[in-house]
């Protein structure tokens, strides 16, 4: 009988042994990490790997400059650089919205870009102090479910959403960077007082709070809300993934210079402490090149920032009809104030 016990003990020990040896095997398979490579240009990218990886590979091939790309959430990467301080390994910060860069700039962590880069993009896609340039832009749209609501009943301005008609029917994501960027644009266009009033009215209209654009869209499709404020390209991407017949929502562009129409800019900047300024500039030039801009237009379904490029397969409402971002965007884009306003309205 004692023998039985010994045999059974074996099963446990072998299971434990398996558990310990697995990671050892894993170690052989695990990728060698490139983080401490001094020759490589380190990019902190708030843009998804699948969206920009091909561009980065192309750049490496073209220039022979090696890239170490660290992907993450745009805002969390800003927090990370703030915590790292001057010791940050990042050379370039590539983000979905520029509020984070402005915050880093306030701390003196961002370098000024050279004129030849600033000259590549229109004024509305850069800041006067030259701390960043836009690489692509996204339109904000009203998402809706055609089965639940007719196009004619959709609001034509942000202010309409505060009317009693929309009580409990609107979905927003106040903690999401694209909503915050939209608010900063709102402030630039209409002033802080009007923005705060609008936020308070929206909050009083019992909106449904979501974590991100994707969650709002699901809410629209499932009838949890009738309309929601989201980015335009989700619609195109979802059609790609699920097929047009399986996408139960549509986009409504608000034209004519309404705050909703202000595009949200994905920006890029170079860190002040970077020892590889020249290589960093080369990367930015590449992202503004015709090749890369065409890629943003065709593959990620965004608006290019360089003139003369059109998407080959998306029919987007031209940026010109949506209203251009006000030049003051950069100055008001102190996110801190935007967030304070969100908190005052009880939305954050």
């Amino acid at each position: 009988m004692a023998k039985v016990a010994v045999e059974k003990k074996w099963t446990l020990s072998s299971a434990c042994a398996a558990m310990i040896s697995l990671p050892a095997l894993a170690a052989c398979g695990a990728t060698a990490t490139q983080g401490d490579d001094d020759d490589a240009l380190t990019v902190y990218s708030g843009r998804s790997e699948g969206n920009v990886e091909e561009l980065f590979e192309q750049f490496e091939e073209d220039t022979g400059i090696e890239l170490d790309v660290r992907y993450g959430d745009s805002a969390e990467l800003t927090s990370q650089i703030l915590e790292e301080g001057e010791a940050t390994p990042a050379d370039v910060y590539f983000t979905l919205e520029v509020g984070g860069i402005n915050a880093l700039n306030d701390q003196g962590y961002i370098a000024t870009l050279p004129d030849h880069i600033l000259e590549m993009v229109p004024e509305s896609f850069q800041v006067p102090d030259g701390s960043w340039v836009g690489t692509a832009a996204r339109a904000r749209v009203i998402g809706y479910n055609p089965e639940n609501i007719s196009v004619d009943d959709l609001p034509e301005s942000a202010y309409e959403l505060t009317e009693p008609e929309w009580e409990g029917r609107l979905g927003i994501a106040p903690s999401n960077s694209s909503f915050q960027a939209f608010l900063s644009g709102f402030r630039a266009l209409e002033g802080d007082e009007a923005t705060q009033q609008w936020l308070n009215d929206i909050a009083a209209n019992d909106p449904e709070i979501f974590d991100n654009n994707r969650a709002i869209i699901e809410g629209i499709e499932q009838g949890v809300v009738d309309v929601g404020l989201v980015n335009h390209y989700y619609h195109i991407r979802q059609i790609e993934e699920d097929g047009e017949e399986n996408v139960d929502w549509d986009t409504h562009y608000v034209t004519g210079g309404d705050p909703i129409g202000i595009p949200v800019i994905a920006g890029i900047s170079v860190l002040e402490g970077s020892q590889m300024q020249e290589e960093a500039h080369e990367l930015i030039e590449f992202l503004l090149s015709e090749e890369a801009q065409q890629y943003f237009a065709d593959e990620t379904h965004e608006y290019p920032v360089v003139d003369g490029i059109e998407s080959q397969h998306d029919e987007l409402v031209p940026l010109g009809e949506l209203g251009t971002p006000p030049v003051e965007l950069a100055e008001v884009a102190d996110m801190e104030r935007t967030l304070e306003m969100l908190r005052d309205a009880g939305l954050l």
């Binding site: 959430d73 805002a75 969390e76 800003t78 927090s79 703030l82 915590e83 509020g99 984070g100 915050a103 306030d106 106040p174 903690s175 999401n176 960077s177 915050q180 996110m335 801190e336 935007t338 967030l339 969100l342 954050l348």
Partner: peptide
């Protein structure tokens, strides 16, 4: 925790 994440996501507001 949602409140904490929201504050961090508004980056600079640690």
């Amino acid at each position: 925790t949602i409140g904490i994440f929201a504050s961090y996501r508004g980056a600079f507001d640690r």
